[in-house]
């Protein structure tokens, strides 16, 4: 019996193997306790973390909670609007978290939080040259995804829709093209609102889903983390199983042969 066992179908990014295909963003949780419960329910092995000015009044250390959860850290460069700031933030994160991995964000607009494509590419190239494992938060643009892969990014992370919008996958066609052409893992990042969005992303051929607000701002984050974990696994299985083609008309599943005639 086939299982969803990750050992049979692992996600590999930059040579590192992950049993889970769900990456978890830590932004938006009401408390570290709620976050810890969601991490456990999600079964994630890779979680994002950010850097901000120190607040001596802050209670509890997110680093300690994440260490206790046994997850790998993926620092982000959230809030950076220039390649220069993003590169500096990535270097600071490398010092703070002792990892070369970075979720590269270079934002172009504070209303949509959409990536600034030229600046993203510039920062990605510089960080790859500096030895970073770069996972760029990207527009859902197949050509940009290819350029990011060409400069040496370890994955590409196109958005489904704007960060925190919960609008799901606005351009499934582009996401499918990105997944088809990519030689590195494709992680659907941003826009997931609920479990079905994660299923669709995986069915389109994405290798993983990164989810923050959909879980952290849900009424019951731990329960939503379970739902999106299962959705990610279901979508992956369905993708591998191969869906039937869409048809305009019905195709009977019961044979016509042997149908009785009563008149």
């Amino acid at each position: 019996m086939a299982t969803t066992s990750a050992t049979a179908d692992p996600l590999v990014i930059a040579g590192k193997t992950f049993g889970s295909r769900l990456l978890l963003g830590t932004g938006g949780f009401r408390s570290l306790d709620v976050m810890a419960a969601a991490i456990e329910s999600s079964a994630t092995e890779l979680v994002t973390v950010a850097l901000r000015r120190i607040d001596p009044a802050q209670r509890g250390s997110i680093v300690d909670v994440l260490a206790a959860g046994g997850v790998k850290l993926l620092p982000n460069t959230a809030g950076c609007f220039t390649a220069r700031d993003a590169v500096l933030t990535a270097k600071l994160a490398r010092e703070a978290f002792e990892t070369e991995w970075v979720k590269l964000e270079v934002i172009g607009d504070d209303r949509t939080l959409l990536p600034d494509a030229p600046a993203l590419l510039e920062a990605a190239e510089e960080l790859v040259d500096e030895g970073f494992i770069v996972l760029p938060y990207s527009n859902d643009d197949p050509i940009l995804a290819r350029r990011l892969e060409d400069v040496g990014c370890a994955a590409v992370m196109p958005l489904g829709s704007p960060i925190g919008s919960g609008q799901g996958l606005l351009n499934p066609y582009n996401l499918r093209l990105i997944a088809e052409q990519a030689g590195v893992p494709v992680v659907l990042d941003a826009g997931v609102g609920t479990a079905s969005d994660a299923v669709l992303a995986m069915e389109l051929g994405c290798d993983a889903v990164l989810c923050a607000s959909a879980i952290s701002r849900a009424k019951d984050p731990a329960q939503m983390a379970s739902a999106i974990r299962l959705a990610t696994e279901a979508g992956r299985l369905a993708r591998r199983a191969g869906r039937i083609p869409r048809r305009l008309y019905a195709e009977a599943s019961t044979p016509e042969e042997g149908t009785p005639e009563f008149d």
Binding site: G25, V49, L51, S61, I62
Partner: peptide
């Protein structure tokens, strides 16, 4: 001088 620490995000 910027002194930064880990916070939830992303």
């Amino acid at each position: 001088v910027e002194v930064l620490h880990a916070v939830q995000g992303g």
